[in-house]
Structures are given as C-alpha cells and as structure tokens.
C-alpha cells in the first residue's frame, strides 16, 4: 500500500516536472516560461520528495523531505522574482500577445530604483520622459 502510494506520488511529480519542462521549451516569452517553471516544478519536486519519504518511512528521511519542500517553496518564487526583475531591466522583449505593460517607464535606468505610480506621474508632468 505504502509502496503503491509512493510510486504514484513520484509518477505524478515526474509528470508535473515534464509539463514544466515542456512549458519552458514552448512558451512564447521569458515571463510565461517562468510561470511554467516556478509553479509546476516546485509542486513536482514536492510530490517526488513526499513519495520518497513514504517509500523509506523513516523519521530522518521524512524530516529531510519536509526541509527540501519548505526550502523550495520559499526559494523558487524568490529566484523567479530576481530573474524576472533582472530580465525586465536588461530589456528582454515581452511576447507580442502581451496586452499591457504597467512596468514601462517605472524603472530609473541609472539608479535601478523602481518608482511607484505617483512618482512617475510627477516626472511625466515635468515633461521628462522616463525610460
């Protein structure tokens, strides 16, 4: 019973990771690719770890699996955030199907500071086109 459950969990995890990789391979731009990799990959690794924990059924193993899962759930969004910010800043193009871009003009190119709406409005009224 525990073996079947473990095998099923690991299969589900591998399937999710495959879907994540497929998304990374065929999504149209960087940001949609990151959608695919952060969500499916964290849950996929989590399921595989749960499967391994069920398989061994030992306390130390379960603790390690829980530690890996917690760590991944904390770090994957942070990595995605840093990479997304850096990529946007470096000028990676958005997909042509993107409907609107609220970030445009909000970055101060020189100091790398991100301005909120009010500050940008003030700058635009001063006749200074940011970006």
């Amino acid at each position: 019973m525990a073996q079947n459950l473990s095998a099923f969990l690991m299969f589900l995890g591998a399937l999710l990771m495959f879907i994540a990789a497929l998304g990374v391979a065929r999504m149209p731009d960087l940001f949609t690719r990151m959608h695919s990799s952060t969500k499916s990959a964290t849950l996929g690794v989590g399921l595989i770890m749960m499967g391994a924990a069920f398989h061994f059924g030992e306390v130390g193993m379960t603790m390690r699996a829980v530690a890996i899962i917690v760590f991944l759930f904390l770090t994957a969004p942070v990595a995605a955030h840093m990479l997304g910010r850096a990529a946007y800043f470096a000028g990676v193009p958005l997909w042509e199907g993107t409907l609107s871009d609220a970030l445009r003009g909000h970055y101060d190119r020189r100091t790398h500071r991100l301005l909120s709406d009010e500050t940008v409005q003030e700058q635009l009224t001063e006749g200074d086109t940011a970006s």
Partner: peptide
C-alpha cells in the same frame, strides 16, 4: 534566445535533477 532564458532552463534543470536524485534513491 537571451541569457535570462538560458538561466530559466538551467534553474528548471537543477530542480529536475533534485527530483531525479530522489527517484534514484528510491
């Protein structure tokens, strides 16, 4: 086509490797 795209690929690759090692352990 750009460096961030490759980094996304590498990031996912490392996640897949973590999963792979766990499966191999089993």
């Amino acid at each position: 086509p750009s460096l961030p795209d490759r980094v996304v690929g590498l990031d996912l690759l490392s996640s897949v490797t973590v999963g792979f090692i766990a499966v191999y352990a089993v």
